[in-house]
Amino acid sequence: MAKKVFTKPKYLKDAVFHYCPGCGHSIIHRLLAEIFEELDIRDRVICVPPAGCAVLAYNYLDVDMGEAPHGRGPALATGIKRVLPDRIVFSYQGDGDIAAIGTAETIHAANRGENITVIFVNNGVYGMTGGQMAPTTITGQSSTTTPGGRNVQRDGSPLDLSQMLAITNGTKYIERTAVNSPKRIKDTKKAITKAFRVQMEGLGFSLIEILSPCPTNWKMTPVEALKWVENDMTKFFPIKVIKDEVGKI
């Protein structure tokens, strides 16, 4: 009898991903489903999905989900967590959601040290609306609203939200990872696992920023997109632990 080496995680629903070929969301969803199982927390998790491509995360993740208006995830998650402090509450947000329209909610939830986790998927564009400039669109990167590339004079520089959050006292663990290679995917899983553990220990605000490919809006093949993450995005958003006041956990 052959050994089973690959299977659908238990808490990923039987649904075909609507995400484009090469999109990072499906990988991240899978990691989350695996982590729910490995930490045995599925019965305690409440996810707050965003407005954006990942709004449909509820079709895939088999946990309680409460949808937030665009950018309001951290505020809504705050409300849930304060009422149910022993549950594991996380918001799943894109770059526009977290670092443009929801900047205030993000900074203040972080600064209050809300004991929640934020999964911040940074793909440098507004995906669902068709590839407009995001706060994290890198300098020179083309988007439908930065024809000819992001121009610092005109559009400002890409915003490093994770770095900003790191200076607030309430944040305990912030790491930037990527899902453009098997190694980085494994590192991402480790980081998310740790972030949930930080919350389970009641230590405070944790955030994992994940650089994620968007081949469709970047107008690249999936393989080109993976390389672009590695060679271009990381120049502005280096892969690293941005803040760790927790250590080994």
């Binding site: 409440i46 937030a68 309001r72 304060r82 009422v83 205030a104």
Partner: peptide
């Protein structure tokens, strides 16, 4: 629970979250 929110928008969304979690909010 009382929270002085960072904005009116955050306040209503906190209340939405609390309501989702079952509290009168």
């Amino acid at each position: 629970t009382f929270i002085q929110a960072e904005s009116e928008i955050a306040a209503i969304n906190m209340v939405i979250g609390a309501s989702m979690a079952g509290a009168r909010a």
